[in-house]
Amino acid sequence: MRTSNVWRKPLPLLAAALSFLVFIVFSQQVNADMFSWFKKKELQLSPTVQGQILLHGQPVKGITVLRDLNYGDELYTDRQVTGSDGHFSFPAKNIRVKDSMFDTDVRHGLFVEQGSEITRIFSISNLNTLDFKSFNTLLKNMTCELSNPELGYDLEPDPAKPGVYLGAISKCSFADESVVTNKEIVE
């Protein structure tokens, strides 16, 4: 008799069960922040990159430019061949990552491949993210003279993370260097 009553009122029962579930979930709210690592989040490894390769002032056409993006042990490599005016571009790259209490090394490198010889033209690294205004600004428009020495660039820090130092090593110059606080030749 009781059983048939239950089956006659499935909705209220379901609602009760659901509200119990909701209660359990929300009573755990204290832990929600702490356990937010279950969420995946979008992370920008690289903004859109645009540049030009020069050698002794002349555009270099048909040269391969490599972009290596590291997130811990993950490596994402893209290749582009420069056009007749030496230009190259890479699209922005986003990945989905899990939050972790442990830090992950993140790297952004641009290299030029000439036969078996590989030359670094840009490199920057940080822990967990490189998605900072100064870094994004630089990569919008860069000119890389291959005969240049490598320069160390100190970049404007992010106000939200005053301790995080951002610095790049590069043979390039940048159209917008307003975010550069200092540059000098790397010893």
Partner: peptide, 11 residues
């Protein structure tokens, strides 16, 4: 990295 170990630009 591709061209060897590097500490990158330091503060």
């Amino acid at each position: 990295e591709r061209t060897g170990y590097s500490l990158g630009q330091l503060p």
